[in-house]
Nucleic acid binder design. Sequence first.
DNA 1: CTTAATTTGTAACATCTGTTACATTGTTAT
DNA 2: ATAACAATGTAACAGATGTTACAAATTAAG
Lengths: 210, 210
Amino acid sequence: MLKELKEQYGYLFEDELLQEINNVGTYKDVPEGFKLIEIGDYIKSMPLLVSGAVKILREDKDGEELILYFLEHGDTCAMTLSCCLGNAKSEIRAIAETDTKLIMVPVEKMEVWLSKYKSWQNFVLQSYHNRMTELLEAVDTIAFLKMDERLFKYLKDKAMVNHNEVIHVTHQQIANDLHTSRVVISRLLKTLEIDGKIELHRNNIKILEL
Amino acid sequence: MLKELKEQYGYLFEDELLQEINNVGTYKDVPEGFKLIEIGDYIKSMPLLVSGAVKILREDKDGEELILYFLEHGDTCAMTLSCCLGNAKSEIRAIAETDTKLIMVPVEKMEVWLSKYKSWQNFVLQSYHNRMTELLEAVDTIAFLKMDERLFKYLKDKAMVNHNEVIHVTHQQIANDLHTSRVVISRLLKTLEIDGKIELHRNNIKILEL
DNA sequence: CTTAATTTGTAACATCTGTTACATTGTTAT
DNA sequence: ATAACAATGTAACAGATGTTACAAATTAAG
């Protein structure tokens, strides 16, 4: 575990901090689809992504979802950060998009390290900055793009974090992530296929223009 | 200035920090409509709101705006925080919604205080948390509400930060803030008036259900 | 193999939002 | 007072998105 820690976070943290993380952190290996955080959860430990990808979702009053963004290796969830340090409930849901390796850091340590390690402080602030930027991009996507553009962006992003131009997903699942209906997605996917941007198959879609 | 500082931030900061803010901060008094931050600006000082309200806007690729949220007394702009500490350009525009009093804190001090004052560290983290929450609410509003609901929420929010159930605004200005067209706003406003929720007048609207 | 469930395709229609065009009313400047 | 401008009202239409319904193709279960 220390080896993977150094690979992912060695350029950020000094050896002493890496050692501390190694000592108090717990290694976690979760499969695709595993629910890491549920809305309303009190967060007791913070996840540092080592490998894989995580999908961050928001929910409306009827329980329907909307994807905000994906997290990748080297990322942490600022929403979680925010909740840990503020002792608040999670505002979002986090689902493993692929098989994922994480290091879970107990929340008590986070505060201590904030004062003890300048590099940790920088990491926390940088994480907030990154997540803020990604949230703003999510706003742009939702507010400024039409559904066909949102859909194509979603497909490309998903192919990206899966490191595969073929994504395994049904039209219904896409509709859930984009907070629309299956019929709308099927319609727009067909148009994308006619335009030569994707190839449609049962349970998977090949992205031709990445 | 120290008096107003203590009134707004006394419960957060110890006297020593308040004194430091008073020494290095510059008092700023700006009129309604004043542009505090432009997209792309490098931020050299961080604004602490003392009184008034500030409108935070995002811009699309065609230069059209979209309101994200309002800031009020006791708030600071986390986007600015984020930019200061990350040495990055501003991703948003900030416009004084009302006549506003601010204290501008030089960016160099912010970093020093992060290590020196625990209360400042908490304030910075709490501000990030608040702004993250507000950004998520903005996402909810844009993604989950229809235009008539967004409009009514906007009117109520605006009345709130102005401490007045009569808001001075034209249909065109509302359309700009909500990233739609004037005709759409006029149509929906008329419906709200018929439903007895507002009263329409030239250049102002009275909100009846707050 | 047969049946049931899942996934996808598609039509028809409703509703919401955006656009263009123009009339009317109120305000400002000369 | 009159002209120019700004703000609002409204109709008519276009386009995007959401809904319902049902058929066809594929897969899973018994």
